[in-house]
Nucleic acid binder design. Structure first.
Length: 114
RNA sequence: CGAGGAAAACAGACAGUCGCGUGGGCAGGCCGAAAGGCCGUCCAUGAGGAAAGUCCGGGCUCCACAGGGCAAGGAUAACGGGUAACGCCCGCCGAAGGCGACUUCAGGAAAAGUGCAACAGAGAUAUACCGCCAGUGCGGUUAAACUGUGCUGAUAAGGAACAUGGAAAUUUGCCGCUCCUGCGUAUGCAGGCAGGCAAAAAGCGGGGGAUAGUGUGAAAGGGGGCCGGCGAGGCCCGCCUUUCACGAUUUCAAUCAACUCCGCCGCAGCGGCCGAUCCCGCAGGGAUCGGAAGGUUUCCACCCUUACCGGUGCGGUUUAGCCGCACCGGUAAGGGUGGAAAGGUGCGGUAAGAGCGCACCCGACGGCUGGGAACUGUCCGUCGCUGUAAACUCUAUCCGGAGCAACACCGGUAUGGGAGCAGGGGGAGACCCCAGGGCUGGCCCGGCCGCUCCCGGGGUGGCUUGAGCGUACCGGCAACGGUGCGUCUAGAUAGAUGACUGUCAAAUACAGAACCCGGCUUACAGUUUUGCUCGCGUU
RNA sequence: AGCGGGGUAGAGCAGAUGGAAGCUCGUCAGGCUCAUGACCUGGAGAUCGCCGGUUCGAGUCCGGCCCCCGCCA
């Protein structure tokens, strides 16, 4: 994951939480907002409430893997934030993948031909 | 085989596809003047035994300090060793636990001093409440001996008296009448336990005397009750047992005054005395009714005296015992409370007691033995000392502070935010008044620019070759050390390990590096190895 | 990464000096009132965050662990 395509600053996260569109699915929450860069940026949020470091790392890695495998299907020019829930670490991989696609379709992020 | 305990290792593996961090390579592509950057591709490599908690110890860096010491504060604590160091590790000692292998222990000093030990308990760090014991005094009580005195009983002797009570004899013979028995023909005679009856013999029984009683009395033991600073002890009992004496029962004997009365028939009755009334009546006699006795003598009781033998009450003296109180001492055995009572057990000893003495045991200290030391011991000596220092304290040793977001450097990127800046006058002073960095400006607002201090952004280094890891040999019981050889093994910076598929019986535990290292503590599924202990079985 | 404070009854707090835990509100029962409130009387209610140790004895002293709150970078 290139560093240029990730969200890092706190104000960027807060801006998306306030002004972005959101969708809630089984095991994740997705926020998105159009940016002017012409490519997509990803931010991942895992709360301390989910558990200790191992659990949090696993949730973040699964969410990032989902984005990586499906990134080519998305429209470009959006900031996207994925928020982990407790089921993110325990759900089967297929459910997680389907949920991500369903949420993207709901927010109209997918490309036309998919 | 089962149970247990110790040490150590592992912490899914392999294969494929896609993807990520770091390092290196590339004749590749793009950008750039260059340095270089980005993309692509190949190779290598990529979380732990605890990475955790941040509980100790260090390295490293900065700050402070000439150097050192004391104090304060903190930490540690048997002894010996290991280590860079440690509160860690090893060995060993001691204590506790376990049959054992083994495990656990903040394990210095309480005889330097201070503090604390609630409640309970007589007493809590030495005390004397009760108790035990000796002595003195006072009081009480029991027993014994001696003695005084009062009352009383039995026996014996004597006396007095004839008062009193009881009893017997006598007066009571005789006469008359009636009656009875025997004899007799009858007149009459004799007699009044003579006879009759009864198998026989003997007397016996009952009553009175005399309220002689559903037995009485005495002693001992038990039990009960009462009195008694409820102590020593004393008193009572109608309860129980035993013995003795008397009585009663049945055969006998003995026996509770003198004596006396009565009994199945007969064994006799009446009169005689006194009084009253009535009748006949000169004297006298009769009838009825009532009353019962008197005299004399003797005996017994009674009365008095003496002797002797007792019983009992009230006293006195002495001795002995016991109890109570007081005083003066001795003692620490006992008091069952406590976590703890000041060595333990036994014997002796003592007025009672006590390590007071002795034997055995336990503990402390000193000496000696062994050991490098803690420590140890079939040794010797002196002693018998509560616990608590995770209470103060003492002793010994160690410790300057902060932490990689430290710190250093680069560009001049950002050029920000905040605070503060001369003086003059009055007054003895406290204090008061004027003014408030510079330029613009008469002043304020505003604008621009300084000086000092504080805070703040980005990048690079620090950053992984280190008290490193593996292995062999040597030294050491071990921890560990030495030498040789081999080897380089994450270094991110919003934070890299993930997804899918297949095989292995299953892979399911706790859990993610953030400067590094040595430990400790805490969490943890499962697997394996080594040697050990106990029990059972087989040989 | 570093540091500080706290955990005691349903709630809010004392007790922190070793000797066995209290206050206010709440709650329950009774009284007062026509009734409610207020008031009066009485009662119940506590693994002192958890585990272990020191001590005769721990809420208190010591060690370890868990949770909550706050500060600084």
């Amino acid at each position: 994951m290139k560093r240029a395509v990730t969200l890092k600053e706190n104000y960027e996260f807060r801006r998306l939480y306030q002004k972005g569109a959101s969708a809630v699915g089984n095991g994740m929450v997705l926020y998105c907002r159009k940016n002017r860069l012409g490519h997509n940026r990803l931010g991942v949020t895992v709360s301390v409430k989910l558990g200790h470091a191992v659990v949090r790392n696993r949730a973040r890695r699964r969410l990032r893997e989902v984005y990586r495998l499906n990134g080519d299907k998305l429209r470009q020019g959006y900031d996207i934030i994925l928020v982990a829930r407790s089921r993110t670490t325990t759900a089967p991989w297929k459910d997680l993948n389907d949920t991500f696609l369903r949420l993207c379709r709901k927010l109209d992020l997918l490309k036309e031909d998919v």
